[in-house]
Write a protein that binds this DNA or RNA. Structure first.
Lengths: 225, 225
DNA sequence: GGCTCGCCGTCAGGATTCCGTAAGACGTGG
DNA sequence: CCACGTCTTACGGAATCCTGACGGCGAGCC
């Protein structure tokens, strides 16, 4: 079970994030400021850190910098909207990803899982899903079709991985928005367009999909071959 | 069969939601205010709660809070549009999902199924009804007859699933309108036409139905084979 | 910094599919 | 033979989906 440290001075935010991460099968530690965060990181093993940028005392950037001196634990930054410049700085300092407030807890959990998978400490062991001549390798972030490597974007990859992992099941656009995008609301046409783009790369005849099929009035389904 | 408790003070909303959930294969309880909701939850087992935020007496948030003291049953909140602040509070209190009014009943049912699936009590395993060589799989949204896949529309699929799930029972058009369509009124010929279309795809000789038979003066019945 | 490029989310138009209703033909029971 | 229920067909409107295009944003490269 991967260990995650959540650092945020807002008690409410922390509580929400922690409960969601626990529900997602993670061991979670908490910290309310930079100093206790660094202290916790000295004592306990952490596989990932969720770090708020704005902190009393030592701020998030400084925590990240000091952390990087001794460790390469992945960091996901929480930033308020409009802190454009800080975002760039944060990434330069070695943050692996960032989420802007306000965010949906589910989205954050998805990001956490994604980063952990990339690093190889994923919660799930079967990080490689296959269907016939299609192979989706989450750890290496590579998908191959009939031995040939597909050039997918991040979204397309996540969408493909989710659908293939649950082959045969029909999902509504709304469910996909929640499960793949991590949104609890949003324009469903986003899903439509991404499905279309994915079909262009996965289907032999995109106008007549045979694997990523649409279920009328419901959504989409991956047909196991 | 999963048990769902619906809590809303608006009688009309409750009726619609309940009928849709029943059509979706759920056992449904009702409550009109917070106190009776908590009372019901003490007595009966519930796998999920659909909870309106605005309630007379004890409001939804308070119900959710008290509920969380003793149970971890998943909660779907019904909120009016624009109650953004309550959203955070609700998440903190452990609501699993949100639906904003006005919503479509079908959407709500999808959310319910999704949450149940995530929690592991879902329809994914139990919601397959069969009758001889006919298999109706709700999660996959696939119906097969003698191994061959039927191409059914959503309405046809829902109708078929309901009838097969209650094989041997005769249903009037009015009952079917209520149970499958979720209407409390409407033109009964709607049912007639859909039955005909369904026969066209399910019966070997649609002019002489042997499985989806008509009970003269009453309605229709699925004959178990 | 300025530039280009790729990805993403949104939107509108058009095409497709589905749904509900009506209206007449047919069959059943009295 | 009549009244009523059921079947069949057809059609317009509605809902859904596909497609192409656009602007915004960040990344990478001068």
């Amino acid at each position: 079970m991967p260990n995650v440290l959540v650092v945020d001075d807002d008690h409410t935010v922390r509580e929400v994030v922690v409960s969601y991460l626990r529900a997602g099968g993670h061991q979670v530690y908490e910290a309310g400021d930079g100093e206790s965060a660094l202290a916790t990181l000295r004592d306990a093993r952490a596989d990932l850190v969720v770090l708020d940028l704005m902190l009393p005392g030592i701020d998030g950037l400084e925590v990240c910098r000091r952390l990087r001196e001794t460790s390469d634990v992945p960091v996901i930054m929480l930033t308020a909207l409009g802190e454009e410049t800080d975002r760039v700085v944060g990434l330069k300092l070695g943050a692996d990803d960032y989420v802007t407030k306000p965010f949906s807890p589910r989205e954050l959990v998805l990001r956490v899982d994604s980063v952990l998978r990339r690093v190889g400490r994923g919660a799930e062991h079967d990080d490689v899903v296959t269907d016939g001549d299609l192979v989706v390798d989450s750890a290496r972030h590579v998908a191959t079709l009939a031995g040939e490597r597909l050039s997918l974007t991040v979204r397309e990859f996540d969408l493909l991985r989710f659908l293939v992992a649950h082959a045969g099941v029909a999902w509504s656009r709304e469910e996909l928005l929640r499960e793949v995008w991590g949104w609890s609301f949003g324009d469903q046409s986003t899903v439509t367009v991404h499905v279309r783009r994915l079909r262009e790369k996965v289907e032999t005849d995109p106008t007549r999909p045979r694997r990523l099929v649409t279920v009328w009035g419901v959504g989409y389904r991956w047909e196991a071959s």
